[in-house]
């Protein structure tokens, strides 16, 4: 199971049952911990619904007690090709 974290200004950004575009960072241990991916995903407060876990921080870094499960559907490539 992968562990992810997201920063939001408002919990409403994490609407359940909808496709969301989020920048999430990996909390998996190792050298790449805290690097981001921009993804299309679904989240749920039902921790058994999706395969991975998502932890939430608010805009100034405060850790939320809310816990989600998350399904990463795909990585969104926003990077213009000239920088690839």
């Amino acid at each position: 199971m992968n562990q992810w974290e997201v920063f939001v200004m408002d919990m409403a950004e994490l609407a359940e049952g909808k496709d969301l575009a989020l920048s999430i960072r990996t909390l998996n241990p190792g050298r790449h911990k805290y690097t981001y991916k921009h993804v299309r995903c679904q989240v749920s407060t039902d921790l058994d619904k999706h395969p991975d876990r998502l932890q939430v921080r608010m805009g100034r870094g405060q850790l939320s007690t809310a816990k989600f499960s998350i399904q990463v559907i795909e990585e969104i490539r926003r990077l213009p090709p000239q920088y690839a």
Partner: peptide
């Protein structure tokens, strides 16, 4: 590297010199 004029990603929050995290992500 290069600073991209047409691509932006999120930054912050960060502990700042004022003694707070003030500027949002």
């Amino acid at each position: 590297g290069e600073i991209c004029p047409d691509y932006k990603v999120e930054e912050g929050p960060f502990g700042e010199y004022t003694g707070y995290r003030t500027s949002p992500r």
